[in-house]
């Protein structure tokens, strides 16, 4: 094993070009577990710790450019207004110690369906800024996840940043685990209302081979909101619409039985989370941000 320590982004790209099998390591919260448990012995570890701009973010007019290594702690503390869905998701990541190290770049690089950031990124409609010595490109999040723990990166590419539109409406994130802390998702759900485009986007984690959107559910809801002119009227969503949306979200899942939960439960739980997060976001959109106890 060789340990590569690029001092700059350019050096990192050069190293990755020279050693395409090099495994990037930043927070280490995935890679080191695999090394400690002897699941992985990469030829090269590419340490990105010294690449400072990966730890920075810029808030622009319409969007945030989030460095790949910005720790979840920073996201939940500093970007709650701009990126509420991702901030909520960040708060559910493992423990304070892990949130201090891990960042979105790691989630994307690993591309595990259980990664907490994915549903929020899908719902927000993010773009991944990937770069190699050959050049830079932006990969829409919808095209990023290509298979179980596989992504659209070329072997010589590294993730530099994620571009996420600043929230133009309420966003929510919800995750099911069997503990009340230190939870790896049994399944997770992200929802973002986009009043600007009058659309709703979703993201589902741990309920299919890859993180997915519930596109049929989105289409149904977009149409229902449109049809009943709810974006304008600000009236409540009817229980039957919410129920149908939840069912379609469940139906979008393609889960497995594993030690963390059954496929049936995952479908069921995604439906419950879809219904609840829809009610929370919609009530918030209606300017009625009262707490929702007992609302379901």
């Amino acid at each position: 094993m060789d340990f590569l320590r690029p001092a700059s982004w350019e050096e990192a790209l050069a190293a990755k070009a020279e050693h395409p099998t090099a495994v990037p390591i930043a927070g280490g919260t995935d890679v080191m577990v695999e090394i400690n448990f002897d699941h992985r012995r990469p030829e090269y570890l590419l340490d990105l710790t010294r690449v400072g701009d990966l730890y920075e973010w810029e808030t622009g007019e319409d969007s945030v450019r989030l460095g790949a290594s910005v720790p979840y702690t920073r996201i939940m503390e500093n970007l709650r207004t701009e990126l509420p869905g991702l901030a909520l998701a960040s708060h559910t990541v493992a423990s304070p110690q892990i949130r201090n190290r891990g960042g979105v770049g790691g989630n994307l690089g690993t591309a595990s369906p259980a990664g907490d950031a994915h549903p929020a990124l899908l719902a927000a409609g993010a773009e991944v800024e990937a770069e190699s010595v050959r050049g830079s490109r932006r990969i829409p999040i919808d095209a990023f996840y290509t298979g179980v723990k596989r992504n659209a990166l070329a072997p010589d590419e590294l993730i530099r940043a994620v571009h996420i539109d600043k929230a133009d409406g309420p966003q929510q994130f919800s995750k099911v685990g069997t503990r009340n802390a230190m939870v790896i998702a049994v399944c997770a759900f992200g929802l973002a209302l986009h009043p600007g485009t009058r659309t709703v986007r979703t993201g589902i984690g741990s309920a299919a081979p890859t993180p997915i959107r519930a596109t049929a559910a989105e289409e149904f809801l977009n149409a229902a909101l449109d049809e009943e002119r709810l974006w304008d009227s600000g009236r409540s969503i009817t229980p039957s619409v919410a129920r149908q949306f939840a069912q379609l979200c469940s139906a979008a899942c393609n889960p497995v039985d594993d030690v963390r939960g059954t496929a049936r439960y995952r479908r069921h739980a995604v439906g419950v989370m879809a219904r609840r997060t829809l009610m929370w976001t919609w009530e918030s959109y209606r300017g009625n941000a009262r707490t929702m106890e007992g609302a379901a």
Partner: peptide
């Protein structure tokens, strides 16, 4: 505060 088990020694340079 971090889990030192998940920091590669070289990263702590």
């Amino acid at each position: 505060p971090v889990c030192s088990c998940l920091v590669a020694a070289g990263q702590a340079e």
